[in-house]
Design a protein around this nucleic acid. Structure first.
Length: 268
DNA sequence: AGGTCGACCTGGCAGC
DNA sequence: TGCTGCCAGGTCGACC
């Protein structure tokens, strides 16, 4: 799925585009994206006003005037696009007030939508770690967590019980900018490096949000446009290409079943 | 506890 | 052209 910066971009687009709008009709084109009964989904959304749009980790929460919450996890290929037209990957179509339309498009149908009363009905939220910009995500927290694990630091960054919202692209970029090898285990990361790591987590994510995220393949914002952080990507998907800092070439390895890209020379 | 793998899905692309 | 295999931003659960 899009990672935190992409989901935050969608959130902001939805906030300016559809908050305070009423959901008049819901067209369920492909019910596989629903995690509840179709009729119940429709019944709880129809006629409701969207009063707030929030994000936690990589999930979006549309708060309704009924006190229900529409939770959307776009996963790998989900898109929320305001306006535009139905396409072959459109799974849901919402008719909103002021003649606005909202499409939920999802090529791989991994995304999940569900209306709940409280977010802790969903396990994801119960186990989710702190937001990276929250004050509880500080050096002491990181040090305590890292000290007790021998898992590679790359895997720890991907673990959403450690920190919410970081995925495969940004974990690679963060470690590159921190000059830390993704192979190092949590307990090998020194105090000084933890400070650097935290600073890079925040800097990289904020920079990516400012650029409306990165678009490797499927991601678009709520306006249907791609993100601009791609231009700032320094290691991800650059296997065999020269490191932007030194002469050696970027290496690809598999960690936690996914590709990790890094520079063996300048990430230690 | 932590790791690995498969499942959930579709489609683009490289190689033959 | 057309086939095969690999790859993809996420998450969960089964299993060792």
């Amino acid at each position: 799925m899009p990672e935190l910066p992409e989901v935050e971009t969608i959130r902001r687009d939805l906030e300016s585009g559809i908050s305070n709008h009423i959901i008049h009709q819901i067209n369920i084109i492909d019910a596989r994206v629903l995690r509840q009964d179709k009729a119940d989904f429709k019944r709880r959304l129809k006629g409701r006003k969207i009063v707030a749009i929030k994000r936690r980790g990589k999930a979006l929460m549309l708060e309704l005037d009924s006190a229900d919450i529409l939770v959307i996890a776009v996963m790998m290929t989900g898109q929320l696009v305001i306006g535009g037209n139905k396409n072959p990957h459109s799974r849901l179509e919402f008719d909103l007030s002021d003649n606005k339309k909202l499409f939920y498009n999802d090529q791989r149908v991994f995304g999940q939508l569900r209306v709940v009363r409280h977010i802790d009905e969903i396990k994801y939220f119960r186990i989710l770690g702190p937001e990276p910009f929250d004050k509880v995500f500080n050096e002491d927290y990181m040090a305590a967590y890292l000290a007790k694990t021998k898992r590679p630091v790359k895997n720890v960054l991907l673990d959403h019980t450690f920190v919410a919202g970081i995925g495969n692209i940004y974990s690679c970029e963060i470690l590159f900018r921190s000059h830390i090898s993704p192979r190092r285990t949590g307990d090998q990361i020194k105090k000084k490096e933890i400070a650097v790591l935290r600073e890079q987590i925040i800097t990289v994510l904020k920079e990516a949000i400012a650029l409306r995220g990165s678009s490797m393949r499927n991601y678009v914002g709520g306006d249907g446009q791609k993100g601009q952080f791609n231009k700032s990507i320094e290691v991800y998907a650059r296997e065999g290409l020269p490191c932007v800092r030194c002469i050696s070439s970027i290496t690809r390895i598999i960690q936690a079943g996914r590709s990790t890209f890094y520079c063996m020379k300048c990430q230690r």
